[in-house]
Computed example of a mutant assay.
Amino acid sequence: MLIGIMSDTHDNLPAIRKAVEFFNERNVDLVIHAGDYVAPFVARELKKLKAPLKGVFGNNDGERKGLYEALGIYDELIELEADGMKIAVTHGTNEVLVKALAHSRLYDVVVVGHTHRYEIQEVGRTVLVNPGEVCGYVTGVKSVALLDTRKREVQIINIDNGELLGAMSL
């Protein structure tokens, strides 16, 4: 299964459009959003995804009722399973929670956002993935991640130029 991972879109519709096109071109089976959509109007672009979207709230998601109605987002932590791989998703605002999830040995992958900085880090038997920011507001780099559960590999890609920013085998 090929999973697209994004975070911190922050209402940047042109960047969201690029991320959606990137995921659609690669025929991902699922898209995970680690929070900070910001406003419900982003649903207009996110609904163009060919794959289902699963996501969590971030600390800048003020209109949660609207995001729930538009995208079905309703929680700050979700658990997913794909090809026998257990995945936890949270925005990353609570560092104690992120550490606990990563060290729990319950998950193969923990997905976070919040810092706007892309990262792939091994924590024991768990891989912590932050896809960076789709919006590009903080770092200037618009990035997403691809998690291939069959190849057991994660990659982070700059959606402006297709550059591979990082990769790790799981």
Rank of each mutant, 00 (worst) to 15 (best):
T126Q: 12
V123Y: 08
A88T: 05
H10D: 00
G35P: 00
L80P: 00
D148H: 04
V56I: 10
A102Q: 05
D108W: 07
N12S: 15
V109L: 12
E163N: 11
G113I: 03
H103S: 13
Y137A: 09
V42T: 07
L46D: 03
L67Y: 06
H114K: 12
G140V: 07
A43D: 02
F23D: 02
A100M: 12
K86W: 14
D61W: 07
T93R: 10
R117N: 06
A19W: 02
K151W: 05
V109M: 07
D29Y: 09
L13N: 10
K99R: 15
T9E: 07
N24S: 09
N161E: 11
I78A: 08
V127P: 00
K47H: 08
G4A: 10
F22E: 10
V111T: 00
G35F: 03
V141Q: 10
V138M: 13
E69W: 08
N94A: 12
D11P: 03
I157Q: 04
D83V: 02
E79T: 13
L71E: 04
K50G: 06
H103G: 03
L101Y: 07
K99I: 03
Q121H: 12
V123K: 04
H116G: 02
R125I: 06
L170C: 03
I73V: 12
E79G: 07
A145F: 05
G35H: 03
K151P: 00
T126Y: 13
V96H: 14
A145E: 05
K151G: 06
H10E: 01
N158T: 03
V38S: 10
I3N: 02
L30Q: 08
T9C: 12
M1Q: 10
V89E: 01
I157N: 01
A39P: 00
A70T: 00
Y118D: 04
A102L: 06
L101M: 12
E122N: 08
I87M: 10
I73T: 02
G72D: 10
D75H: 09
Y68K: 14
F41V: 03
P52Y: 09
V42W: 02
G166W: 10
V89R: 02
V141D: 05
Y107L: 04
D36Q: 08
L147N: 00
A167N: 01
A34F: 06
K47Q: 11
A39S: 13
N27F: 06
L147C: 01
A82G: 01
I157C: 01
G84A: 08
I120A: 14
I156G: 01
N59E: 13
D61T: 06
M168W: 07
D29Q: 15
I120Y: 13
K86V: 05
C135Q: 05
R117Q: 10
V109R: 06
L46G: 02
G136I: 03
K50Y: 07
V28L: 11
L165K: 07
L80V: 06
H91E: 01
D29G: 15
I157V: 15
K50T: 04
V28A: 11
H91R: 02
D148M: 06
I32K: 08
E79P: 00
D75K: 15
I78Y: 11
K142E: 14
P40E: 14
T126P: 02
R125K: 15
E95K: 15
S143F: 09
R44Q: 13
V89I: 07
I16E: 01
Y118F: 14
E79C: 09
